[in-house]
Amino acid sequence: METVQAPWQTAAILIGRLIFAGTFLMAVAFKFMDMGATAGYIASVGFPLPLFLAWCAAILETLLVIAFLTGAFFTPAALIAAAYVLFLAFAFHGPSHWTGNQAEFGSFINHFTFLAGLLFAAVHGPGSVLASKLGRV
């Protein structure tokens, strides 16, 4: 049973979904513009098969954009995105990167604010407007 939302709540949910989608869309756009650079960045932190992982990241981010825009499989997508963001925080901006670069600590912390939003979204869902019923529990 869905509750009726005030117009500002509907707008806030839709804006939040657009922000999530836009963030992942920018990330995937940079990957597609230079997949080699993304692979190089992945290799620089020591992961094997960097080009394969870059393509996996691009595919995942594309699917997340679709889920956030449509609302389809929204809760699982938000949880997967949360795990992905947490992984990125530690793998690319974690404590081993802080020595001599305070900006990395800032990047690390910023991932947690994004993580909090994704977890909140996973609990509350995509809202009732412009949201596919596909994948809803």
Rank of each mutant, 00 (worst) to 15 (best):
G71T: 05
C56D: 02
W8R: 12
G127P: 04
A12P: 03
L130R: 05
H93I: 02
G22F: 05
A54E: 06
L25A: 15
T70M: 04
G16V: 09
V129L: 14
V123R: 15
T99N: 11
G22E: 00
A57Q: 02
V85F: 06
P50T: 00
L79C: 09
I42N: 01
G125M: 00
L69H: 03
L64R: 09
Y84S: 09
F73R: 09
G22D: 04
N110Q: 01
E61A: 03
M35K: 15
G36L: 12
L18K: 09
G135L: 11
V45A: 01
L119C: 10
T62Y: 01
H93C: 08
F73T: 04
T38P: 10
A83N: 03
K31L: 11
W55A: 10
I13V: 14
L25P: 15
A58R: 02
K31M: 14
A37S: 15
L49C: 08
F74L: 01
H93F: 12
G40E: 05
T62E: 01
A91W: 10
G127V: 07
A21Q: 08
T75N: 12
R17C: 00
C56Y: 04
A77W: 03
A78V: 00
T38S: 14
V28H: 14
D34A: 08
G36C: 06
A82T: 08
Y84P: 00
L51I: 00
A67C: 13
S132Q: 05
P95G: 14
Q9G: 02
T70Q: 06
L63H: 06
M33Q: 14
A58D: 08
F30R: 14
L134T: 12
G100C: 01
T113I: 13
V65I: 02
L14H: 02
H124S: 12
F108M: 11
T38C: 11
S44V: 06
V129M: 07
I59G: 00
F47R: 04
S128C: 06
A37C: 12
G46Y: 10
A58N: 04
K31V: 09
T113P: 04
L86M: 10
L18C: 15
A83T: 07
M33R: 13
